[in-house]
Design a protein around this nucleic acid. Sequence first.
DNA 1: GCCAACGTTGGC
DNA 2: GCCAACGTTGGC
Length: 152
Amino acid sequence: MAYWLVKTEPAECGIEDFARAPDTPVRWDGVRNFQARNFLMQMAVDDLVLIYHSSCRHIGIAGIARVSTSAYADPSQFDPNSPYFDARSTHDKPRWQAVDLVFERQLPRLLPLDEIKALAGLEGLALVQRGSRLSVMPVSTEQWRILLGPHQ
DNA sequence: GCCAACGTTGGC
DNA sequence: GCCAACGTTGGC
């Protein structure tokens, strides 16, 4: 089983939205970056995913979700009314992928970015690398252990 | 294939 | 709201 981290704006879809309907899968769509997409495609059912809140008041890791469906063609790329529409995508050759995530649990308290940056051993994590904007990234077992500490 | 221009991300 | 840093686009 692998570990991941995804960024999201809680105003759009945060851990609260997962927690509100814990049995309903959330489609993780709208990823429009090739590196992030490639990581989505590597996700497998039952992988665990850290939900990171960005561009908001309280920035940090808010909870954990589980992959419930491995990658499939992101339907929003075919929808002209979607902000994620991509005219270059065809059903034969979709450019973008989505996965489904389900709520696993919320952290007892948000792990803020400044605390994450203060942890030793996370130098390889894209989240804390200067200028990195990657929105889907792998997390090693060791990084997972460091991030969750007593909360795992 | 280069690279300038542009749009986006995301912390502050 | 600012702006540094980055990824993508498109002319050449």
